[in-house]
């Protein structure tokens, strides 16, 4: 059977993509297969593991529980590939994960990174208990959660230092147009 294709426009990490997908294409599969952004991982595909978490208009959501055709209504999607700053410098959450040894095999990591990046925007200074609650919806089977919880709090410190420090953060929050460092996409 030939499925009807829908042409959609998705703005991912600041770049607008036009793709043709069947209605049943999950956002997670669209990101990975149609856009080649394989940083978003797919674990359970029913919303339990959190590996596929991306930011939709700044809010962490499960990309396996959204259809790409429906996600196209949103302004902006950020995947793990889009967390780094304009000059490629790692996001505070990424630096904190490296510092605190919050990843081992790395499979769950993109989901945690996007989740925590979104979480800290609304909760810039979480207690340990709040940090634990914040990551409770994402599963990790090898690193262990202690270091991930530590990394949430460390990321909050690094992020706050950047906000106070000014320029790096200001650049990150600058609205479109995006820098043209990604070479030719549009």
């Amino acid at each position: 059977m030939t499925e009807e294709l829908h042409e959609i426009r998705l703005r991912v990490n600041g770049i607008v993509h036009t793709v043709s997908v069947p209605a049943r294409r999950l956002l997670s599969d669209c990101l990975r297969h149609d856009l080649g952004l394989t940083g978003t991982h797919v674990g359970c595909e029913h919303g339990v593991c959190g590996a596929c978490t991306v930011l939709v208009d700044g809010r962490p959501m499960r990309s396996c529980l959204m259809f790409a055709v429906s996600a196209a209504q949103h302004e902006d999607i950020t995947t793990v590939e889009g967390l780094a700053g304009p000059g490629g410098e790692p996001h505070p959450v990424q630096r904190a994960f490296a510092e605190c040894h919050a990843l081992q095999c790395g499979f769950c990591t993109p989901g945690f990174l996007t989740l925590i990046a979104g979480y800290l925007e609304d909760n810039p200074d979480p207690s340990e208990e709040e940090a634990r609650e914040a990551v409770s919806g994402n599963l990790c089977r090898c690193t262990g959660y202690q270091n991930i919880v530590s990394a949430v709090q460390r990321a909050a410190e690094l992020r706050t230092a950047e906000v106070v420090g000014g320029p790096a953060r200001a650049a990150e929050e600058a609205p479109a147009p995006q820098p043209h460092s990604e070479g030719g996409h549009q």
């Binding site: 999950l26 919303g47 529980l65 259809f67 055709v69 209504q73």
Partner: peptide, 27 residues
């Protein structure tokens, strides 16, 4: 009807639900 989809889409992914027509009310 598809709204948030956080119950419907897991059921569709597991093929416990297979609606022939989906009406997305998000717009």
């Amino acid at each position: 009807v598809l709204a948030g989809g956080q119950s419907l889409i897991p059921m569709m992914n597991m093929r416990l639900a297979a609606p022939a027509v989906l009406v997305d009310i998000n717009r």
